[in-house]
Each structure stands twice: as C-alpha cells, then as structure tokens.
C-alpha cells in the first residue's frame, strides 16, 4: 500500500475486513473465552505443550522472554474497580486471569509484513505459519499487538526432549528448529483429521468434532471452540448472544451489559477470539 493509496482511501484504512470475504470461506474457526469460568489453573497451557511439541527453554532463556507458551495465562493484580471502598491493602476481589492464545485475526497485522509470505490466511480463517518458508525476520512478531508469536532463537531440542522424552513428540506436526517463528494454530492437525473424517463420511464437520488441546482439557469449560460459519455451533451462538460480530470495526450492542468483547478491538485486527467479562459479587 503506497502512501498515496493510504491517504486517498484513508476512511478505509485497516477496515478492509468490513468488506467481508470470509463468508466464502469453508470454515471460520473461532473461540470464546469466559473469564467468569476461567480460574487461571494453566491446564490449557500444558496441554498445548503436550499436543504441539512446544520446546522447554529453561530458566535463563525464559528470563529473556523466549518461553514457547503458545497458550499462556496472564495474571493482573489491578482491581477492576467494581465497587467503591475496596481495600487497597489487599486484592479483595482476587486476581484477574487472562488466557491468551493467537487471536487468529482476520485483519492480521502479522501477515502483510512477512517478506516471504510464511504467514498467511487459510481458507479456514486461520492465521497460519509455514515453517519451511520462514526465514526468521521476526517482522510478524514485532507487529503482533498481542505478543503471541514465538521465535526459536536456539535449537531447544536437546534440552526439551532428551531420550526417551522424544518418544512423546506428536508425529502430526513438526518440531521447529532454530530461526523459525511459531504460534498457536488452533491445533490445525486436529482440524485436519476432523475434516478428513467428515469428508470420508460424506458429511460436514459437526460442532464438537474437533477441539484444540486447550479446549479439550479446560477443567472449567471456560474455552469454547467451533466454526463461526456454522449457525448452530455453540461458539456462533455465544458470539451472537453477546452481540459481538466478526468483520466489524465497531460493535453495536442493544444491551450494553452483555459481556462479550474482543481484546484491542480498536486496533481493527478483527480477532476470532471473543472474551466474556469476568464477574465478581460486590454485595460482600
């Protein structure tokens, strides 16, 4: 996009996703995260390590921010200021936990900056990373506002999977080596199996045919996953119930009290992950 082009079409700048396009997609995988249910236990994250061959980087490299947690739980201490008079001495309303995985943005900021098209959008609405193409420029990671891309600064293989730990590696996907960017895929290998099975059985992929590892293990059902193009899927219903829509730069809600929101909505990245607000009783 040249500067001239940007200036001429300023009103449409980073609003391209409003023009639609994804409606022609085969699937549009999406998620909903209920922060009223999430307890911050971290089961999702370890399930992801197990499923997706995530490397262990060790203490020193973790300190430098190299941890490979495609799915991570942020924990914030600030009070949500729900009620006046909440004690400043203690966090009386507990902590605020936030599971963060790739938001699979429809207007992903990571995609257009890749010099080799290693990151691109699939016809499933996924923000995919082609490891073979990646040359490690790290532009994508620099451009991700959610900090959800993870770079292999080193070969973590020896430390992560000394024999026989390597026998645990999931053969459905590769082990990434030094110089490659990696990220959450919504467990694309599982999606592929579900699609293949459905095709063999001459039917559509049904809601519940496929769960990413994090969703499958979540002890509190805080994570809901499914096809946003399937009007009957639980994730579609949840988005609808909370009046959050894909392909909008500004959400319209009849009822302002509905809990749905997307993180950094204002950046117009059009994420496929909706969050539902955390809830606290303030009568006590």
């Amino acid at each position: 996009m040249s500067l001239q082009n940007i200036l001429t079409n300023w009103s449409q700048y980073r609003k391209g996703h409003e023009q639609g396009g994804f409606h022609d997609y085969e699937h549009m995988w999406g998620m909903a995260v209920d922060l009223n249910k999430c307890i911050g236990c971290n089961a999702c994250s370890v399930a992801c390590y197990a499923e997706n061959n995530l490397g262990i980087v060790g203490k020193d490299r973790f300190e430098k921010g190299q941890g490979m947690h495609w799915m991570r739980i942020e924990r914030y201490w600030d009070e949500p200021n729900l009620a006046p008079g909440v004690s400043e001495e203690f966090p009386s309303r507990g902590a605020s936990f936030l599971p963060m995985m790739c938001q699979q943005c429809n207007a992903a900021t990571c995609e257009p900056v890749c010099p080799v098209a290693a990151t691109y959008h699939t016809p499933d609405g996924l923000n995919a990373q082609v490891y073979n193409r990646c040359i490690g420029s790290r532009y994508c990671s620099n451009n991700c506002p959610y900090r959800l891309r993870y770079f292999n600064f080193y070969s973590y293989y020896d430390w992560s999977w000394p024999e026989p730990l390597n026998m645990q590696l999931n053969p459905d996907l590769s082990v990434r080596d030094k110089g490659v960017m990696e990220k959450c895929t919504f467990c694309v290998q599982r999606i592929r199996v579900a699609k293949d099975t459905a095709r063999r059985e001459d039917r559509k992929v049904a809601d519940g045919d496929v769960y990413p590892a994090c969703v499958q293990t979540c002890p509190t059902d805080a994570l809901v996953f499914g096809d946003m193009l399937d009007p009957e899927s639980s994730v579609t219903k949840l988005w609808k119930a909370h009046q959050v829509e894909l392909g909008k730069t500004k959400q319209h809600k009849d009822n302002e009290e509905l809990r749905g929101y997307r993180i950094f909505e204002g950046l117009n990245t059009d994420p496929c992950v909706m969050y539902l607000e955390r809830v606290r009783e303030v009568e006590v």
Binding site: L35, F62, Y76, F97, L98, E257, Y275, R278, V279
Partner: peptide, 18 residues
C-alpha cells in the same frame, strides 16, 4: 513470566458485577 502486573488501563480483563 510476563512483564506487567497491571493492565495499564487497557481493556484486557474487564469485569462486571454479579
């Protein structure tokens, strides 16, 4: 893990009353 202990005013974890 993580850098910030607070949300620095951004709408990351929003809360409502029961």
């Amino acid at each position: 893990f993580g850098g910030s202990e607070t949300q620095v005013g951004r709408k990351l974890v929003a809360s409502i009353t029961a």
